[in-house]
Design a protein around this nucleic acid. Sequence first.
DNA 1: GCGTTCCTATACCAGTTAGTCCAGTCCTGA
DNA 2: TCAGGACTGGACTAACTGGTATAGGAACGC
Lengths: 239, 239
Amino acid sequence: MTTGTASTQAYEQLARDLTVGRYAPGSRLPGERELATQLGVSRATLRLALSRLESEGILQRSAQRGWFVPTQVIGEPPSTLQSFTEMARARGLRPTARVIRQEVRPAGMDEAAKLRIAPAAPVIEVDRLRGMDGTPVCFDVVVVPENRAAALATADLTDASLYDVLRERCGIEVHRSAYTLMAESADAELARLLGIGAGAPVLVGDEIAYTSDGTPVLIGHNKYRGDAYRFEADLFRRA
Amino acid sequence: MTTGTASTQAYEQLARDLTVGRYAPGSRLPGERELATQLGVSRATLRLALSRLESEGILQRSAQRGWFVPTQVIGEPPSTLQSFTEMARARGLRPTARVIRQEVRPAGMDEAAKLRIAPAAPVIEVDRLRGMDGTPVCFDVVVVPENRAAALATADLTDASLYDVLRERCGIEVHRSAYTLMAESADAELARLLGIGAGAPVLVGDEIAYTSDGTPVLIGHNKYRGDAYRFEADLFRRA
DNA sequence: GCGTTCCTATACCAGTTAGTCCAGTCCTGA
DNA sequence: TCAGGACTGGACTAACTGGTATAGGAACGC
């Protein structure tokens, strides 16, 4: 006989069976009761071995369904709206933002149409230079109706997430954004702000953000350094 | 697997698919039997998830007919996968495509990884110059595993929709694509093909397309003229 | 002696599965 | 116009699943 406790032996036997390919990836193992009988241990002991295999990622449990051999496939994230701030943090970088302009002014005709407000109704415009770890990456213009987000006019938006401010200070929860992306060349002013050469490629994103009831609440216009930013999304094909 | 019961997982998966626009508003979902298979749960479990979605107003049931996505009052179409061909037709333009290269070659290391095939396994590469009404708009490289789409190697892809050919000739239905977009400058060769100046901005899209069971079937690399193409998508914020 | 640790055995619970049967809906072809 | 077949969701059952709790036996160190 071998050495070790019964649960360790069961663990090792299962690990062997799995590496040897006794159970196909994606398949379900026999039930705990049957497996325990096969291995000659009690169910409680078997479960210790199974839990150990799960903690090592060799097995996956699914309550009331069974134990499964993992498939190598990892699920990709669905297309999701991620703010610049969140994106930077997800990459372990510190998001920064320098406010260049922050003022209340009358809405232009197309802005009013997009935001479904009266022409020349007051809007707040915030221009910011956004970066990661201090390096400028994006020039960002945001326009919000003043009657919906008055607090934004005076809030300190330096290094802050605008989405966070909208949610916490104005009670506005962005749910969906219609995005348009295109490639342009940087003009002299933008090139200076982003620290790139004039004519360098920039990724231009236009956004209209909506709350969950479909009300437009924000117009965004972002110009990203072409060499420092990517845009990712999942798209679905209709059945 | 993640956490929670199977029915909760099915519920969450369906909710994700719905917010992300996998099923169009007003459309019918696949039958319960097929949907259960797709989600890897039994029909009874699926029905728990469906009932929960119904109680939240996310789905509507119609006995003996099917499950329907409620039509939204407001809102533009959600992010949906639209081929170049479809996009051109939707704008009343005639999509064109000139085949520049069409060959079978061994897959590179990263291609093999993305397509989950063996390194150096044969793949079909198709390079095309695509346009609308004859004006070149996009240089398009597509890589597909040869064992899944042998017919593609010999098909005439001039002015054809590659997605259509994949579906009709190879039985491959693209369901989801992971997209990455960035801005670059055109090099001399690309500038010549697209008829733009060297250094002009181009919108570069990288795509990995999957079937409904999550198998990667296609790598796409598209370079669009910055002044002739926009990319549109709807993004959703996680609940 | 005692307590600890590991193991066995048993029982019950809520969730899940696969299967069957039914009635209503829809499409197609005579 | 009508009949039939294919498909739909609705409802139900029996068997099975892992999750949990319980009680008791066996080996070991002190």
